Computed example of a mutant assay.
Amino acid sequence: MASKWIKPVLASALLTIGLAGCNTTDNSSESKEAKPAEEESKVVNVYTARHYEADDQVYKNFTEETGIEVNVVKAEAEELIERLKREGESTNADLFITVDGGVLANAKNNDVLQPIESDAINENVPDNLRDKENYWVGMSTRARVIVYAKDRVNPEDLSTYEDLTSDKWKGKVLARSSTSLYNQSLLASFIELNGEEKAEEWAEGIVNNFARQPDGGDRDQAKAIAAGTGDVGIMNTYYVGLMANSEDPEEKKVAENIGVFYPNQETNGTHVNVSGIGLTKHSKNKENALKLVEYMTDVEAQEYLSANNYEFPVNPEAQMPELLKSWGEFKMQELDFDTLGEHNAKAIEIFNKTGWK
Score class of each variant (00 low, 15 high):
5 W>G: 02
8 P>I: 08
11 A>S: 14
15 L>M: 11
23 N>D: 14
24 T>C: 11
34 A>I: 12
38 E>F: 13
40 E>W: 12
43 V>E: 15
44 V>P: 00
52 Y>G: 08
65 E>T: 00
67 G>M: 03
68 I>C: 05
80 L>K: 02
84 L>R: 04
85 K>M: 08
85 K>H: 06
86 R>F: 12
96 F>Q: 07
99 V>S: 10
102 G>R: 07
104 L>H: 10
107 A>T: 10
117 E>M: 07
121 I>M: 08
127 D>P: 02
133 E>T: 08
136 W>Q: 02
138 G>C: 03
138 G>A: 05
141 T>G: 01
145 V>F: 06
148 Y>K: 07
150 K>M: 07
150 K>W: 07
152 R>E: 15
154 N>L: 01
167 D>E: 15
176 R>G: 06
177 S>N: 08
180 S>Y: 07
182 Y>C: 04
185 S>G: 11
186 L>P: 03
187 L>S: 06
189 S>Q: 03
191 I>S: 12
195 G>I: 05
202 W>N: 11
210 F>V: 07
213 Q>Y: 14
215 D>P: 00
220 D>E: 15
226 A>F: 13
230 G>K: 05
234 I>W: 02
241 G>L: 00
249 P>L: 09
254 V>N: 04
256 E>S: 13
261 F>I: 04
262 Y>W: 01
294 E>C: 06
298 D>S: 14
303 E>M: 03
303 E>F: 02
312 F>V: 02
315 N>F: 06
318 A>S: 08
319 Q>T: 11
321 P>M: 04
322 E>V: 09
322 E>K: 15
333 Q>W: 01
337 F>C: 01
340 L>Y: 00
341 G>I: 02
343 H>C: 04
345 A>T: 12
346 K>E: 12
347 A>V: 11
349 E>R: 03
350 I>F: 04
351 F>I: 07
